[in-house]
Computed example of a mutant assay.
Amino acid sequence: MPTVNLRHSVRAIILAEDERILLCRFAIPEPAGTVVWATPGGGIEPGETPLAALRRELQEEVGLAVPTDPPHVWHQEVVAPGHAKGYDGVINDYFLVRTPPFEPRGALSDDQLAAENISGLRWWHPREIASYDGTDLFSPRDLATFLTALITAGAPSAPIHLGL
């Protein structure tokens, strides 16, 4: 059986006190015109722990310092060639970060963010995600359902496994 090369990434479910979630707008080059709203985060570098990667990514992308170890709440494996350039898919581990509302502005410049396909940041309420009827996608696809369950029940004792 061939080896599958998956990119291991960490992502933050950043929830403000009013239950809004901060999402990054990813303008994906292939297929052209694809826009995906996803939580901030990114790949774990060699020798880096998942929480160190999470802290680095949040500083870079949104300017948020995470002083404590947030709970690991979701786990996602997507095996789909082309889903992550140079990989056969991704493993995303999601951590819950509660925070007062803030104006996101990370250490990366707009050009550096664009190089990572990030073209914007926005706070969304779960109701807005659930009722969205435009062409943009959300990741995970059923984000509103998972997010509502997380807000209602709190952090699970073990990470919930997500689909695409």
Rank of each mutant, 00 (worst) to 15 (best):
residue 3 T to R: 13
residue 4 V to Q: 10
residue 9 S to F: 04
residue 9 S to R: 05
residue 10 V to F: 06
residue 11 R to V: 12
residue 11 R to P: 05
residue 14 I to C: 07
residue 15 L to E: 03
residue 15 L to Q: 12
residue 17 E to T: 09
residue 17 E to V: 08
residue 18 D to F: 05
residue 21 I to E: 09
residue 22 L to G: 10
residue 22 L to D: 07
residue 25 R to P: 03
residue 26 F to Q: 11
residue 26 F to R: 12
residue 27 A to C: 10
residue 27 A to T: 12
residue 29 P to H: 14
residue 33 G to C: 13
residue 33 G to K: 09
residue 33 G to S: 13
residue 34 T to I: 11
residue 36 V to G: 05
residue 37 W to Y: 13
residue 40 P to Y: 15
residue 41 G to S: 14
residue 41 G to H: 02
residue 42 G to Y: 09
residue 43 G to A: 14
residue 46 P to R: 10
residue 46 P to K: 13
residue 47 G to Y: 08
residue 48 E to G: 07
residue 49 T to E: 11
residue 50 P to D: 12
residue 50 P to N: 12
residue 51 L to Y: 12
residue 53 A to S: 15
residue 55 R to H: 11
residue 58 L to C: 15
residue 60 E to H: 08
residue 60 E to V: 06
residue 60 E to F: 04
residue 61 E to I: 01
residue 61 E to L: 15
residue 64 L to S: 03
residue 64 L to F: 09
residue 66 V to I: 15
residue 67 P to G: 13
residue 72 H to M: 05
residue 76 Q to Y: 04
residue 77 E to Q: 06
residue 78 V to Y: 09
residue 81 P to C: 04
residue 82 G to C: 01
residue 84 A to P: 01
residue 84 A to V: 05
residue 85 K to T: 04
residue 90 V to Q: 02
residue 91 I to E: 10
residue 91 I to L: 02
residue 92 N to C: 05
residue 93 D to F: 05
residue 94 Y to D: 07
residue 95 F to D: 05
residue 95 F to R: 04
residue 96 L to I: 08
residue 96 L to C: 04
residue 97 V to G: 08
residue 98 R to E: 15
residue 99 T to G: 10
residue 101 P to G: 04
residue 102 F to V: 03
residue 107 A to T: 08
residue 107 A to I: 01
residue 109 S to A: 04
residue 110 D to S: 04
residue 111 D to T: 00
residue 112 Q to I: 02
residue 114 A to C: 02
residue 117 N to I: 06
residue 121 L to N: 01
residue 122 R to W: 08
residue 124 W to V: 02
residue 128 E to M: 04
residue 130 A to I: 10
residue 131 S to Q: 14
residue 131 S to K: 12
residue 131 S to W: 13
residue 132 Y to G: 00
residue 133 D to Q: 11
residue 133 D to H: 04
residue 136 D to V: 02
residue 137 L to K: 12
residue 138 F to V: 06
residue 139 S to V: 08
residue 144 A to Y: 11
residue 145 T to G: 04
residue 145 T to H: 13
residue 148 T to I: 11
residue 150 L to F: 05
residue 151 I to Y: 01
residue 151 I to S: 01
residue 151 I to R: 02
residue 152 T to L: 11
residue 153 A to Y: 14
residue 154 G to H: 00
residue 155 A to V: 10
residue 156 P to T: 02
residue 164 L to G: 07
